[in-house]
Simulated scan of single mutants.
Amino acid sequence: MPKRRLASALLAVALAAAPLLARPAAAHQLWLEREGDSARLYFGEPIENQRERSGGLLDRIPNPKVFAADPAAALPVQRREDHFAISLPRGTGDVRMIEDGLAPFGRPGTEKVKPVMLAREGRAETRQVLDLELVPVAAGGNAFTLMLHGKPLPRAEVTLVAPPRWERRLHTDAEGRVTFETPWAGRYVAEAVHVDNTPGGSGDGAYAKVRYVSTLSFTVDKGIPWTER
Rank of each mutant, 00 (worst) to 15 (best):
P183A: 10
M117P: 01
R120Q: 12
H149M: 06
M147L: 10
P62T: 05
A206K: 07
L102K: 06
T145R: 12
G141W: 08
A72S: 14
A206P: 04
L160Y: 01
G93M: 09
R34S: 11
P225E: 11
V161E: 10
L170V: 04
A192V: 09
A206E: 12
L146T: 01
S87R: 08
G140R: 15
R4G: 12
R127K: 15
N49I: 13
P152G: 02
A16C: 11
E191C: 12
E35Q: 13
V135F: 00
D59N: 11
R155W: 10
L15F: 06
S8T: 04
S217G: 11
L32S: 03
A14I: 07
P164G: 13
W226V: 10
V193L: 11
T227D: 12
A156P: 09
V66D: 00
V210T: 00
I86S: 01
L216P: 03
I86M: 03
A69V: 06
G56L: 05
M117K: 08
A73E: 13
P108A: 08
D82K: 01
E33S: 07
L30H: 00
F105P: 05
A190L: 08
A26C: 15
V220K: 14
R229F: 15
L57R: 11
L134S: 03
V178Q: 04
R120H: 06
P163D: 10
R120P: 04
R80A: 06
R177M: 07
E35F: 04
P136Y: 09
L11D: 00
T179E: 06
G56D: 05
W226T: 08
V77C: 00
K112C: 01
P89V: 02
A74D: 01
T110Y: 06
P136T: 11
P89N: 07
K209L: 14
V113W: 04
T198L: 10
P154A: 04
G36Q: 10
E35C: 09
V66P: 01
T159P: 05
V178H: 03
A39F: 00
